[in-house]
Design a binder for these strands. Sequence first.
DNA 1: TATGAATGAGTCTTCATTCAT
DNA 2: GATGAATGAAGACTCATTCAT
Lengths: 200, 200, 200, 200
Amino acid sequence: MTSASTPSTPKGERRRNELIDAAAALLAEGGFEAVRHRAVSERAGLPLASTTYYFDSLDDLVSAAVERHSRNELAEWADWLDELAARQRGVDTLVELVLDILLGRPPQDGTPDMDAVLLRYERLVATGRRPYLRPLMTTLAAELEELLLRFFERSGMPVQPDRLKQLIALVDGAVVNALVEVNPDPRAAARRMLRAALQE
Amino acid sequence: MTSASTPSTPKGERRRNELIDAAAALLAEGGFEAVRHRAVSERAGLPLASTTYYFDSLDDLVSAAVERHSRNELAEWADWLDELAARQRGVDTLVELVLDILLGRPPQDGTPDMDAVLLRYERLVATGRRPYLRPLMTTLAAELEELLLRFFERSGMPVQPDRLKQLIALVDGAVVNALVEVNPDPRAAARRMLRAALQE
Amino acid sequence: MTSASTPSTPKGERRRNELIDAAAALLAEGGFEAVRHRAVSERAGLPLASTTYYFDSLDDLVSAAVERHSRNELAEWADWLDELAARQRGVDTLVELVLDILLGRPPQDGTPDMDAVLLRYERLVATGRRPYLRPLMTTLAAELEELLLRFFERSGMPVQPDRLKQLIALVDGAVVNALVEVNPDPRAAARRMLRAALQE
Amino acid sequence: MTSASTPSTPKGERRRNELIDAAAALLAEGGFEAVRHRAVSERAGLPLASTTYYFDSLDDLVSAAVERHSRNELAEWADWLDELAARQRGVDTLVELVLDILLGRPPQDGTPDMDAVLLRYERLVATGRRPYLRPLMTTLAAELEELLLRFFERSGMPVQPDRLKQLIALVDGAVVNALVEVNPDPRAAARRMLRAALQE
DNA sequence: TATGAATGAGTCTTCATTCAT
DNA sequence: GATGAATGAAGACTCATTCAT
């Protein structure tokens, strides 16, 4: 009904942003269930009512958080893409980079960063019951594919779109299946799949 | 805390069962969020308090529901496996059967049965945030793999375990990516992947 | 959904009753708008959640409050009816009694008791936007008519149902119009109308 | 407290007017509860804050809306009065016209227009709890009576003020009682009463 | 003179769990 | 062993009003 206040002032813009950041952080840490008006407002240090002031509904806030999170990932890679493609050599390095792009870069300390990986798949699956996420997720998926396409190309190992889809499916399938393991290491699982497929 | 009531009386056993059935049905229809004490008790036609009497917590009930649902699926196929393997001919038929096993048999009327498909992936991804589901899901995954291994074998097209994992990943990856489409048809996406992989 | 807990224990019965009483009091004092979960629970000195435990929805609670209030009025008169009919003499006394029944007995101190009168008409008009009150209000109206019919009869001044409806309309119309006066005295207005009609 | 902004500029006057129109429309459609700052501003296509800028409080806005609505009704009839009085013949036609004036003209399609009828009585009863409406409603009631008096006179069937009050009471009483019926047809109820009274 | 921004208080309702019986 | 009763905490969302600009 009341259309969300798209703030015109810099301050309003900033606050709206802080709410999205807070929501994105909660999303990453606790999944979709963790994104609640109260939790977001407390995390952002803003009044509860600000969450409904800046967003028409919780769904809107969730959408914004999903987009923020995904765009951050995408943007990060878009910047480095050419540089990386030029630098790397060999299938193994390529594989790691693809995994970095698809699953996020793991923390240096060797701990697998489950939260980040998980979110990618929660996003996909959650869309199944949240139709309002579909347009956003479709766009995002297309952008990611585009990015990877260019990446393979610059890396001197161009792939057809269908082949790329296949590689992505392989990674994603490996990950979701690895999620159930007692000591899940989805990246390792995806790595195995991807190497095998690329070295055929 | 009352420890989980493992009922000794036949009547208790029966009621516990009815609760699990109700929970499994809700799970299939509405995902994890739909499994609530009240909803389960009403569905089962049993008192609200019976849900906490027979299960220590909602998580326990959810676990039982996941197991029940998965075992039902598995059992269904175990029964028909040999019969099916003997009957079918050709890659296309094989592919459909594999999809039936992995994604559930679609309703006859052509409507893609999203709910059933969705649950398989919600289960996998939900395990990421529900460690208590891991042992169960690991066992279940192994049994499913075992089943498929035997199935390919009887179909005269034996596959190595690693190759099977790859095929499963392909299907699962195709599905989770198809979930975000505006008119999702995950089965069709999985079919394309699987056929391509099997016909190489 | 969850059907309202119809308490079986005496204590539960008592608490449910206290909630209805509290709601009826608020209704009388502040009209329909004043009946809120919080207000009712605070007035009754019971937890907020008890209001939703004993009543499926606020509408249910409002209905119960309306019924309680009306039944109290009705019951009061049913008890005294024959005695009063035997005692009174003359049209003027009859008129006052009819007004007592329709508008409630005014406080002794001469202050017109607006709240009580008002509620009768708020109830009627509110039903216009609250279909769920219709069955209840229809029954109540029929019972009131029945009561008045018997009352006129015992008073030695029997009236036809249609004539009674006319008299009631006269009173009600007089009252709702008197409500807007700067110093409203709806009872006086109704008295004038009724006397004129009865003395024709 | 900023005192009520009585705008001096023509533009201010116009906007204030648009707000009143919007509020009156909402009042007619949804009763008093429907008149909210947000709803009014959206309906008028004006900023939310304009509602508090041009009106000290919501009550002020409601008052203005009630007045606007009533004056519109009154004005409509004042224009046609003489013409109608000259044209009509017979008690039945007279009755319909009186009902038109008191209850609003029903839509042609035969559907009883509950909203319009309802508002007349909500206005009266609401005044019981809104003293600030009393002066306004008193004036309005007097004007309506005046109008009807003249109308009866021109129709060749002059009535005394007291007799008119009686007829109005009859209509109003019939209507408020008809409001509770399961299929309310207040106009029909009022018609019966009025005909009976006029044909005595 | 206007108005976008902002929010404290409040709306109804749901829910997992505890506890007395 | 079973369950009705009960509730604190939280859920999404609305709203009249204030205030800085």
